[in-house]
Amino acid sequence: MRAGALDQGLPENMSQTLSADRRLEHKATNIRIDILKMLNIARSGHTGGSLSCVEILVELFYEEMKHDPGDPALPSRDRFILSKGHAAPAIYAVLADSGYFDKKELLTLRRLGTVLQGHPDSKKTRGIEVSTGSLGQGLSMGVGMALGLKIDRFDSRVYVLLGDGELQEGQVWEAAMASAHYELDNICAIVDRNGLQIDGAVEDIMNVEPLSDKWKGFGWNVINVDGHSFSALRSAFHVAREIKGRPTVVIAKTLKGKGVSLFENKVHYHGVPPTDEELKIAIEELESCRR
């Protein structure tokens, strides 16, 4: 199987989307540059895990999800929860680019008085659904949303992005159990499987494998994809929508620090922002890939 193929239900015809994907790749590069500029100006924040989930966010916000930046409270919208809240710069860059707030706010990240807190704060930021940052809590909130949306017979979907290190939190598995028990097929969890956490490799710190078997054992439909392939993510989200009676998890294999060789797969850049010099090098590399 080539990279990006699914465990199951792979739609045959994905070639006509190629030019659209070029557009998304362009978008992803812009988002990465925004993220790095924000982190550099803020002088603190999480570089690696923000860069690893860019394609996931871009695919969700520009292709998959039903949402309206002009009306963030639209009752029938799909919901997105950034359970791995430390990737806040990534969601802020995507929300700003989508039109939820002015792009110049990005440069106020983490400053006193900013609407862009170090971790997502639904009271302060337009487009942020719930507050996260303490790991392990997002999927539970997704469960509550999914239950409530079903009561009101909305066909809205709930997307929850988790880190792979985050899966070490026991609450995630409480929520996983509840999602399957209540047959919440309107939930789609995505695991940003970049393989690293602050102290080292996930497998060394506290192994989460066998990951697919764990989710399957909890009653979930499991799809493994290349988390940097738009077409693969799109197919996975499409399959997830069609699966009835149980929730789906998309385990997205990613590279921490993706897009900048200086940061790629380096534990050090989990919680370290780029210096001025690193920013320059990073932007040059990202721009050169565009050409």
Partner: peptide
Amino acid sequence: GIAEQNLMGAAAGLSAVGK
């Protein structure tokens, strides 16, 4: 079930959709 952390999170989610 016997899972209070998830219980509180789910309550938060229900509130976030207007319940």
